[in-house]
């Protein structure tokens, strides 16, 4: 298992191999459909996202004694961000995407060109992933986008996932798709 920590520099992530389990520590940002559309259309991020990790996630939160607590925070389907992701990687220099289900060819190419990896977190494992969140550092666009769609700035420790798109452009999702297609064709 490889340990990566914020800021996720190009040299750190270049060594992350396809299919390898990685453990992320430091800071991650959450973002969903509305944030991605906003950023891709040239919207100004409320903080510097360079060398950051974008977690495709809309958490379940609660206010506990005046502070935010994250009760559940699993990944959401990443493919919905495919139209926006390549330009966000390029413009804002995001180095790690955390999500589920993988992404398309545009993102894969942007990962190669600008040095970014895709980490598949375990979909639905929301309590376990919330357990790796140490604290809420900040929240942006809460009023505009709502709780699930807001940009949450989270301090994390040992958030785990599997590298499924690497900086060389290899894609585990695509490999499985090809292998399973062959098996399907034999059965049809």
């Amino acid at each position: 298992m490889k340990r990566l920590s914020y800021p996720f520099t190009a040299s750190q992530i270049r060594d992350a191999r396809l299919g390898e389990i990685v453990s992320l520590s430091g800071k991650v940002f959450t973002g969903r459909d509305r944030l991605h559309q906003f950023l891709a259309e040239g919207g100004r991020p409320p903080l510097d996202l360079r060398d950051g990790a974008m977690f495709h996630c809309g958490p379940v939160t609660a206010r506990e004694g005046g502070a935010w607590a994250i009760r559940a925070a699993g990944p959401t389907t990443s493919s919905r961000q495919e139209p926006y992701m390549p330009s966000i990687i390029e413009r804002l220099q995001i180095r790690v995407i955390i999500g589920k289900g993988g992404m398309g060819d545009g993102t894969r190419r942007a990962c190669v060109k600008h040095g970014c990896i895709y980490v598949q977190a375990i979909g639905g494992a929301a309590v376990l992933l919330a357990g790796s969140i140490q604290s809420v550092v900040g929240v942006h666009f809460l009023r505009e986008f709502g709780e699930a769609e807001a940009l949450w700035e989270l301090a994390v420790e040992d958030l785990r996932g599997i590298v499924t798109i690497d900086t060389r452009g290899r894609c585990l999702h695509e490999n499985i798709r090809t292998v399973s297609r062959k098996a399907l064709d034999r059965m049809l």
């Binding site: 996630c57 379940v60 009760r71 559940a72 494992a125 929301a126 309590v127 376990l128």
Partner: peptide
């Protein structure tokens, strides 16, 4: 990982999945 999450959600009385 999934099964650990199942146990933890039950123990912590928290939603299994955020969706």
């Amino acid at each position: 990982t999934i099964l650990r999450n199942v146990e933890l959600a039950r123990k912590k009385d928290a939603p299994l999945c955020q969706d």
